[in-house]
Design a protein around this nucleic acid. Structure first.
Length: 241
DNA sequence: GCATTAACACGTA
DNA sequence: TACGTGTTAATGC
């Protein structure tokens, strides 16, 4: 972990939607109180069970939100790409973190300390509204994920996991090239690497994605979404014999 | 049947 | 050298 240039941090915050929504005074306090850290691959940003002392935003890089089961298996809930924020739930509830947040690659993350976060929540209607939208979107995403997990085949579930990274509210700065390995994508969808690889091969044949070393290029997010839906719909069609 | 594990060859940073 | 990809045979639920 290391400290970094203050000017970059300010520029990033000023390009962030919720910062732009703030009044001048609130914005000045938010900028003054936040600090950033650089994490190497596998560095821990926040640990499950620890007090939630800040709200976390990604300036650059990729974070992994996950938990470890009793049997030692890692369950990945979501990835947090640049421009996205995570961890407000535990900050608001004053509860210990419910999951680990670790760096999937070198990542610069901003921390907005809890007191500043709570002050913004209590004094700024704009900020409160932003947080409500954020929580709402997150809830919707997890419900959709559960639905896809129940009805879709591996290709559908992998496609669904990919689509989640393109939610415009949660991930406003997402780009079509997702720099995530197939192993990590498998962890997101809940599959082994072999199954994930076969699922990706299917998506590639359908011209929905292209693959490259350490990344996957989404050719058309809308078509990918439509594919996730269509896999689900098969259950509602008449039986083919 | 479908998914996982473990292994192998091969390519890339 | 360490990591990621693509594939397969054996194994398990």
């Amino acid at each position: 972990m290391a400290k970094s240039e203050q000017s970059d941090l300010t520029a990033f915050l000023l390009s962030t939607y919720w910062v732009q929504m703030l009044s001048k005074g609130a914005r000045e306090r938010a900028l003054a109180d936040s600090y950033d850290r650089i994490y190497d691959v596998k560095d821990v940003v926040a640990r499950e069970g620890e007090p939630a002392s800040s709200w976390i935003g990604v300036v650059d890089g990729l974070l992994k939100v996950s938990s470890v089961t009793a049997s030692g298996k890692s369950i990945m809930f979501t990835a947090i790409p640049k421009g996205s924020w995570v961890g407000e739930g535990s900050v608001i509830k004053r509860e210990p973190r419910r999951y680990d947040i670790t760096a999937l690659r070198t990542t610069r993350a901003i921390h907005l300390p809890r007191p500043t976060f709570m002050w913004l929540l209590e004094t700024s209607v704009e900020f409160s509204r932003y947080i409500i939208d954020h929580l709402n979107e997150r809830a919707g995403q997890f419900i959709a994920m559960l639905e896809v997990a129940r009805i879709a085949d591996p290709a559908g579930r992998v496609a669904g996991a990919l689509c989640n990274l393109f939610n415009p509210v949660l991930y406003p700065k997402a780009r079509p090239l997702v720099n995530i390995s197939q192993e990590e994508l498998g962890e997101l969808a809940g599959f082994s690497r072999a199954t994930t690889n076969a699922a990706i091969a299917k998506l590639r044949k359908l011209d929905l994605v292209r693959t490259e070393y350490g990344g996957i290029l989404v050719l058309d997010v809308d078509r990918l979404r439509a594919f996730v839906q269509s896999v689900g719909m098969e259950d509602h069609l008449p039986e083919k014999k």
